[in-house]
Design a protein around this nucleic acid. Structure first.
Lengths: 365, 365
DNA sequence: CTGTTGTCTGATAACGTTATCACATCAGTG
DNA sequence: CACTGATGTGATAACGTTATCAGACAACAG
């Protein structure tokens, strides 16, 4: 009875019950409680029931902090995303969580929102809370890379997605953006286009750059010259490329001001493509009759633009799955053997044909 | 020298250095190290420097788990989001983090992705890791509410955003969706429309419902009858409303099949509106000449649709800021006094006029 | 009967911090 | 010189869990 009062007081004080409270009330040792809630070791059925009754009664939940501290493992992985609004992030997370959840891991997301300060704060928080590993999808920055390296050197498993990071212990999962860009461009060439612009070139984005390289390679492969005036990016100083639609819009405006505007446009991503389409419409031009447009990413909205957008799809969910799988491998191997060699996975993209690309280029020009 | 070897061995084993390691190497007590890294209590300048040197040398970072366990506070708040792809989520998080970061808190995001299982896993992970408080923006579900209640009863500060949750200790921040819906509808009425449809009605979404109520109230206030056939939602069994664009598309199709289709459409959100516009285009109708459309949310893309979308903007970042502020208040007051009364904040929306609404309804019909 | 094995339970000591107390030291005050 | 109060340092004991060891008892083989 006295023990009961003790418990009551604790509960009323708003404190969480602990193994000790459970043990006292059930009349067993804390270790036995631990064994019951973890289903580990030998426990007699009678004990088990007695303990479980009290656990339910007090609505006990083990303290993850204490548990993680003792176990030296949190069963949590961190996910560091460039920004949250990006459909890519969403799909990626879905793929990651699908794997994690099935393996008993939780995940905490952090976003850098393109701010170095936030990226560091995020990494810092994840590391300080001793997540078991981190999946990183932010863009490369010198300071970000430095931080990342210091984490890896501290033996924290890391996998990067959609970006690069040279380190023998860091796996990498990405889509083959270059090949995707190559295919998109090749398709435009095959449709008869000769003046094909690339919209949204930017040094900031590794994936964007690889798409651009695919564009260049395709032109080269088909004997077309790269015309500098047809490669446009965000206005030099228009900030850190915040609104990609706006990039597309402004870039397209500049293309349309040329003496010989392009008959086809390959945009760095769908949002850029949408911006470009908007500029064309404002200019009284038709897609695809006057200009064909191809985007990249196949965001959900791409099927609902006017006209629906031809675009390149990358297997985002699958990238998430692969990244999570690789990370868990590293986490679990870390316990015993020595780390395996770096793995690099490069998944294929594929072109999705819709109505923003015509079968043939406009007759004149 | 011997001490040095000891450290080396630890470092090589990939273990993190601890206060004890630092203390041993600096020749002080662990407590002194703690005081230095926390800048608390009295420490002489000489000690401070000695310790800091070793801290830098071993690249020491305090173990957040141990610290949190001891301090009974993690300086982390959890954010539970309905889905991550939503622009609303992104802006909300930005507002929240703006406040949190400045107050020294980190945040971990979890997404439910409309899955009850994931929502629970997320809440569970957050709670188990003893976050100091949670901001919840998921939709209401019976089981979610039950979980939430149990967390609140355990004395965990909770603030809900954009949804409801009746509890004397849970603050609520939201935008006035009803008023926003009212204004949008009023605007269409003032432009002369009489047959105004509502697209995307759904019992699932609290905010959507409030927008719908605003629509109803506006019709009533202006003496217009509510016509049931003009209120459409997702096809009964087309899944959990996954693609809102598709909802808009299908719903609009059905409206166009009516003998007397509407001359204006108020969509539950911008994506629905975009889907509806797409259906109109496929039907050979012009926006706004044949049908006017108003959306809700003012997603970044809304300015780039064709034509650009008239929509209602809700102050999302501000909701984030307010929610974070309220939560921190509760977290910090919890330390001493008794909890304050529930606060409810309702922020104003405002209409953004673009080209999807014409000044006057089409002449005939 | 002794020894072995398997099952069950508990005591103890960590995990890495920090709150708290206790003890020194030193300056200034009356 | 005794007293106060500020300053500086360390020992100890938690926070809530679990790994590890050790003991107890039963069943069974030799």
């Amino acid at each position: 009875m006295k023990a009961k009062r003790g418990k009551r007081e604790k509960a009323e004080a708003g404190k969480h019950p602990t193994v000790v409270d459970i043990a006292a009330r059930a009349g067993v040792a804390p270790m036995t409680v631990s064994r019951v809630i973890n289903e580990s070791g030998y426990v007699s059925e009678a004990m088990r029931e007695k303990v479980m009754r009290v656990v339910k009664e007090l609505n006990y939940h083990p303290n993850g902090l204490a548990r993680s501290l003792k176990r030296q493992s949190t069963q949590v992985v961190g996910i560091l995303l460039p920004d949250i609004v990006n459909p890519f992030s969403a799909e990626l997370v879905r793929g990651i969580q699908e794997v994690l959840l099935s393996r008993g891991y939780a995940s905490f997301l952090c976003t850098s929102e393109r701010s170095i300060e936030r990226e560091q704060a995020g990494l810092r928080a994840l590391f300080d809370h001793r997540v078991d590993g981190i999946i990183v999808a932010t863009r490369e920055t010198p300071s970000g890379n430095e931080w990342l390296r210091s984490l890896v050197d501290r033996n924290l498993p890391v996998v990067v997605v959609g970006r690069d990071f040279e380190h023998p212990l860091v796996d990498r999962v990405t889509a083959d953006h270059e090949k995707g860009g190559h295919e998109a461009t090749k398709y435009l060439i095959a449709a008869g286009h000769k003046r094909i612009a690339f919209v949204g070139v930017s040094m900031q984005s590794g994936t964007g750059l690889r798409r651009f390289q695919g564009y260049l390679a395709a032109l080269r492969d088909h004997g077309l010259a790269v015309r500098e005036e047809l490669v446009v990016g965000p206005d030099s100083l228009s900030g850190p490329g915040y609104s990609t639609q706006d990039d597309g819009y402004q870039s397209m405006k500049r293309l349309l001001a040329l003496r010989k505007p392009p008959t086809a446009v390959f945009a760095r991503n769908d949002f850029t493509a949408i911006g470009a389409m908007c500029a064309l419409r404002d200019h009284g031009l038709s897609v695809p009759d006057d200009v064909s447009i191809v985007g990249f990413d196949n965001v959900p909205l791409a099927a609902y633009t006017s006209p629906p957008l031809t675009t390149v799809e990358q297997p985002t969910v699958e990238q998430g799955r692969q990244a999570a799988t690789l990370l868990l491998e590293r986490i679990e191997e870390r316990r015993d053997g020595r780390p395996r060699d770096r793995v690099e996975i490069n998944l294929n993209c594929h072109l999705i044909l819709r109505q923003s690309t015509g079968r043939r280029p406009p007759a004149r020009r």
